[in-house]
Amino acid sequence: MGKYIVRRLLQMIPVVLGATFLIFAMVFLLPGDPTAGRCGDRPCSPEYVAAFKAEYNLDKPFLVQYALYLGKLLQGDLGTNYYGNTVAHELAIRYPTTLKLALIALAFEAIVGIAAGVVAGIRKGKFADNLVTISTLVVISIPVFVIGSLAQMIFGLKLGWFPVTSGDGTWAQLILPGLVLGSLSVAYVARLTRTNLVENLRADYVRTAKAKGLSAGRAVGVHALRNSLVSVITYIGASFGSLMGGAIVTERIFNVNGIGNFIWRSINQRDGVSVVGAVICLVIVYLVVNLIVDILYGVLDPRISHD
């Protein structure tokens, strides 16, 4: 197990280096003036351009630029925007709200997704299965921002069940945005659970479980489900990536004052330093979560980690 974790950590290093390099290249290597769109709607002042070039070492050779940039990242320096605020500070004051939102979405994903998938899987081909399969297909097909706007219109405005906006970021205000954010993943979790369960129900060890005289509930609920959940739990962890992308949309619709909304506002205020800094932060969080998920996968499936 220890060896497995070390191996995983070592394998992650080139990916992190590659990903940060890729983002760096996207920002500084693509054609165009890197300072364009970093100072609101007006062109940057010469002083700012000079300061920017010095900050990112744009006069040095490219690889040196990257190395220095990486060094800054490691110190948690995500840059300082045109308004003089560090991006790290902007993110620090907003992350609790986004975290709450993500937790609601994850809980929704796990509970409703797995339950729906199990019902569909054990009633394969029956009404419940068709209902789950088709409704998840519909949910997958409706982009999150459409679901968000519709949910706001129906549950917020028309029915009044939930607050329409979530400016303060309390748990109650975040429920509806959280459900919207988790809606896409809930559909995938349900389908994945169903597929895995259907496959595992046909596995030889389920037949063995029946031959051992276990009840159908135990054969399915302990033996088949435990195997099915390996990849489902892994997926739930890894769905963090789409959750963070979705958070930008969800927070904008419900006016949640979190990291996603910060990114959206920065895009529209043409605050490029904040956009890039915040997105890099999210990508790094995503990479770390992925690593944890990978290790978790090894814990859940003994065949992986003991090799």
Partner: peptide, 14 residues
């Protein structure tokens, strides 16, 4: 390793 939407935002912003 870079989520589609996040990476898309960076590229398109640039």
């Amino acid at each position: 390793s870079i989520p589609l939407l996040l990476g898309g935002i960076i590229i398109l912003y640039t």
